[in-house]
Design a protein around this nucleic acid. Sequence first.
DNA 1: CGTATATTGTAGTAATCGATAAAAAACTCA
DNA 2: TGAGTTTTTTATCGATTACTACAATATACG
Lengths: 201, 201
Amino acid sequence: MPRGRPRKFDVEEALDAALLVFWRHGYEGASLAALTKAMGVNMPSLYAAFGNKELLFRKALERYLQRPASYLPKALEAPTARGAAEQLFRGAIDMAMNPRHPDGCLLVQGALTASPSAEPICKALSLTRAAAEAAVRRRFEAAIAAGDLPAGVDAAILARYIITVIWGLSVQAAGGATRVQLEEVAAWALRSWPGGNEREL
Amino acid sequence: MPRGRPRKFDVEEALDAALLVFWRHGYEGASLAALTKAMGVNMPSLYAAFGNKELLFRKALERYLQRPASYLPKALEAPTARGAAEQLFRGAIDMAMNPRHPDGCLLVQGALTASPSAEPICKALSLTRAAAEAAVRRRFEAAIAAGDLPAGVDAAILARYIITVIWGLSVQAAGGATRVQLEEVAAWALRSWPGGNEREL
DNA sequence: CGTATATTGTAGTAATCGATAAAAAACTCA
DNA sequence: TGAGTTTTTTATCGATTACTACAATATACG
């Protein structure tokens, strides 16, 4: 169907490969040489297909949210807020420990700090983290409205707490923590769940 | 007292300046141009005094532990384990929100990921984070031995949980969280303290 | 003063960074 | 087949990276 010479690479596969490199080495630590090598795409083709390094990262980030990080919106569909929180932790740990991709969460490992030229990436990741927190907060607000959570609970604080633990788990994963260690932390983090803890792990 | 031409800069002041640059931009994001400019030291002098970029970072890290991050060993001197945990959070938040230096914790912002050439720095920071966690764990083990914490508590898990929240707070600080927001998270994190929560915040 | 020592300032190193120009190659359509 | 279109290939581009050689400078010591 296309007009000229056909591509030798699949755009989404190349994007997945780029995502892995950004994930493992961070935005600035991922050189275009490493990216092109992992993607199997030479440099002019990469620029023709994706624009530049920053745009490539942003597209990889979109793909990250759609595929490996899709556990988050799925977790929020759990019937109870408590179940949603449990699935958030489970999903985050499953992703962080998945041997098919690097440890931790791209929203954290991608770039917390960077040189001035990469600050837009820091901000984009920060905004994405804030969006994740906001999604959790809305889920908890709905739980309060439904009587699933006590009316006295501050959904914003609870959501920020849960998300903070998840970012902390990502840092722990970067340090080589094991799955069991992360699960123990998550179980302990749920001890502060509002309204008593019937099941202790 | 020295033999030849005297230095035009103070080594510790220059190290403090370098620490701020590493803290704000991360190890790889801190260029030697930015470092020399902030330190007020030209390049040959920097290399004569500190060796190279990696050694400079390691010395800045030592200084970080001695000065801004000294809240950690101090917090562990609190009379009770619960008090130690509270002071850990308070110290971490005070440091993260101090306008005199960048937000967050150098052990997290310095480098979670990096290009292959900077992996030794990632590992050094990871080891330092592990050492912090181990110090907290030992404090909690002592608390259990002293009857300050219930015998059934796993000090390693509790320490890892507290430290995980602290790393998460650092990520939140990188995203522009306010002091109040961090304090709310810390207060909530302490709700899971073993042995009941007399004071709820 | 003169010599030794150590730092400073200037200039520049090779290598790598992200990003491209230009031409050859592979397809569609007339 | 041949014109038109798009990608690949090859060879780079200037800028920036971490790093250093060399000579001038400023001190202490004899």
